[in-house]
Measured scan of single mutants.
Amino acid sequence: KELVLVLYDYQEKSPREVTVKKGDILTLLNSTNKDWWKVEVDDSQGFIPAAYLKKL
């Protein structure tokens, strides 16, 4: 599985998104959309702007 590093805090703005903190390491589930990547946070899944993430 691929991991990503969160570069900036992000507060979810819709139920399909997730809240993350700078420095979090998350599992990347889908990066086919260049603007929004799907990640797994704890036991939930959701989208975060790709610009907030860096592949490890």
Rank of each mutant, 00 (worst) to 15 (best):
V4K: 00
L5S: 03
L7W: 02
N30V: 07
Y52D: 02
G46T: 13
E17R: 09
W37M: 02
L7N: 01
L56N: 02
A50G: 04
E40V: 10
E2K: 10
P49N: 04
T19Q: 06
N33G: 08
S14M: 08
Y8D: 08
L29I: 14
F47L: 08
K21Q: 08
L28T: 01
F47K: 02
V39A: 01
D35W: 15
V6H: 00
L3T: 07
I48H: 01
L26I: 12
D24Y: 07
A51M: 12
P15W: 08
L56D: 02
K1N: 10
R16C: 15
L28V: 05
L5E: 10
S31I: 05
E2L: 11
N30I: 06
Y52T: 06
P49C: 06
G46Y: 15
G46Q: 09
V6D: 00
K38I: 15
I25V: 11
K1M: 11
L28N: 00
P15L: 08
K34R: 12
P15F: 07
E17D: 06
E2T: 13
G23P: 01
Y10M: 02
L29M: 06
T32N: 12
I25G: 00
V41A: 10
K34T: 11
V4A: 07
K55G: 04
I25R: 04
E17N: 10
V39I: 08
Q11Y: 14
S31N: 08
L5M: 10
S31E: 11
V39D: 00
I48C: 14
S31H: 08
L56F: 09
I48D: 03
G23I: 02
Q11R: 11
Y8W: 12
L29R: 03
G23V: 01
D24S: 11
N30L: 08
L56T: 05
R16K: 11
K22V: 06
D43R: 10
Y52M: 07
Q11G: 07
W37D: 00
N30Y: 06
K55S: 06
V39K: 00
E2F: 11
V39P: 00
L28K: 00
L28W: 02
Y8P: 00
Q45M: 10
K13H: 09
V20A: 11
E12T: 14
Q11V: 14
Q11F: 14
K54S: 09
E17H: 08
T27L: 13
L29D: 00
G46M: 15
L26E: 01
Q45T: 13
S44I: 15
D42V: 09
I25K: 05
A51Y: 12
V39H: 00
R16E: 11
D9H: 05
W36G: 01
K22P: 03
K21W: 09
Q45L: 07
L3M: 11
L28D: 00
A51L: 11
K22A: 13
W36C: 10
L7C: 06
P15M: 08
D9E: 05
S14A: 09
A51H: 13
Q45S: 13
L3V: 07
S44K: 15
L3H: 09
Q11L: 12
I25D: 00
T27G: 06
D42G: 15
E17Y: 07
A51P: 08
V39L: 03
N33H: 11
K34Q: 11
L29P: 00
K13I: 07
K13F: 09
L7Q: 03
K38A: 09
T19G: 05
D42Q: 13
